[in-house]
Amino acid sequence: MEVRTIKVFTTVDNINLHTQVVDMSMTYGQQFGPTYLDGADVTKIKPHNSHEGKTFYVLPNDDTLRVEAFEYYHTTDPSFLGRYMSALNHTKKWKYPQVNGLTSIKWADNNCYLATALLTLQQIELKFNPPALQDAYYRARAGEAANFCALILAYCNKTVGELGDVRETMSYLFQHANLDSCKRVLNVVCKTCGQQQTTLKGVEAVMYMGTLSYEQFKKGVQIPCTCGKQATKYLVQQESPFVMMSAPPAQYELKHGTFTCASEYTGNYQCGHYKHITSKETLYCIDGALLTKSSEYKGPITDVFYKENSYTTTIK
């Protein structure tokens, strides 16, 4: 009895394709271990004539594949690729409408935090270190965002349907971005203890939790000093293409032309909904596939993004 075979390709990165001759009487799992086709788990399936010449994702289970996976995804987590594939199996079914010149995501599976993050990423200057993220990001900007969303979920250790947080998501993504040249110098002034300067680099240099107003941050924000008295913390120097200011959701007025974009969060910790506000020729609110415009805006804002380049204080 002759062994019926077909020729397929296996890959971990969709760049390096490895030619395989597979036995049609055995499952993919018996031949390769966990195997995925377009995100779908085909591990328990036997090869079919229609699979001839198709590319299958496999887990990096030998040295060659491990090197290829690390170079593309910059992670050695053995569960990463499987999590990416199972997320992709959902995100490829989502709709990605162009809204006001940006790629958004039609609401499904509690994905409003991903839509808000995706919209924000198209408006701030950011370059990702893992080629996987950078490639998928370019495709997302062009309207094909399924891979990018699935990668975000995998890097953030999230599953489809789980509630997510924009600030946490951005923080994970910033860790995989090139923020080497970003720098922030802060000064804390206390009447009792004097003053202390701190220099922050990388992710810490672009994120701040405690106030939404970048102007206020430049002037000074009140913080408790270690001595128990009130101290003032203010920005001395900022070198970065953008800054992200966050605070627990509270009524906040966004003035046209003073910011790049913002995240609105309605609801409580267990259950809520994100919308995205962007400042173009007027203010726009993007909620999944829905767009509304207004000249002014007041609502429960939790993150505001500002364009920056270089700032030095005039406070002496």
Rank of each mutant, 00 (worst) to 15 (best):
G194A: 04
T232H: 09
S25I: 06
Y138E: 15
V8W: 02
F128G: 01
D180G: 09
E125S: 09
T232N: 06
K201V: 13
K201T: 15
T302C: 08
S86G: 11
V185Q: 05
A231G: 05
M244S: 00
G29C: 10
G33F: 04
K106A: 15
Q122R: 02
V203C: 14
T266R: 06
M26V: 13
L119E: 00
T91Q: 04
L179I: 03
V58W: 06
A117D: 01
Q197C: 08
A117N: 04
A115I: 04
T5V: 14
T11N: 04
Q122G: 04
A154T: 09
A262V: 00
Y96T: 05
H48I: 15
T266E: 10
N89H: 15
R141C: 12
M244P: 02
F242Y: 00
K255S: 10
N111G: 01
N111Q: 02
E168Y: 07
Y252Q: 08
N61Q: 14
N157Q: 08
S240H: 01
V67M: 14
K158V: 02
A115M: 07
K255V: 14
G202D: 05
C193H: 03
V188T: 14
Y172Q: 10
S181A: 15
T10D: 02
A146R: 06
Y214R: 02
G220D: 05
G194V: 02
L114A: 02
I105E: 02
F217E: 02
G29E: 10
A205N: 02
N110R: 06
D63V: 08
Q30H: 13
C112I: 04
T27K: 10
I315L: 15
Y84V: 04
T76S: 13
C261N: 03
I152H: 03
C182E: 02
E68L: 05
V166I: 06
Q195L: 14
A69T: 10
C193G: 01
H90V: 12
W94C: 03
F70E: 12
K316N: 15
G161A: 06
A250T: 15
D77S: 10
S240F: 01
D41E: 07
I315Q: 15
Y234G: 01
D63A: 10
E215F: 04
Y155C: 01
T76W: 10
V42F: 13
L88G: 01
Q195V: 15
N110V: 02
Y208E: 09
E144T: 07
S240Y: 01
L163P: 11
S279P: 05
W107N: 05
L290E: 14
N49C: 15
A140D: 02
Q175K: 08
V304A: 00
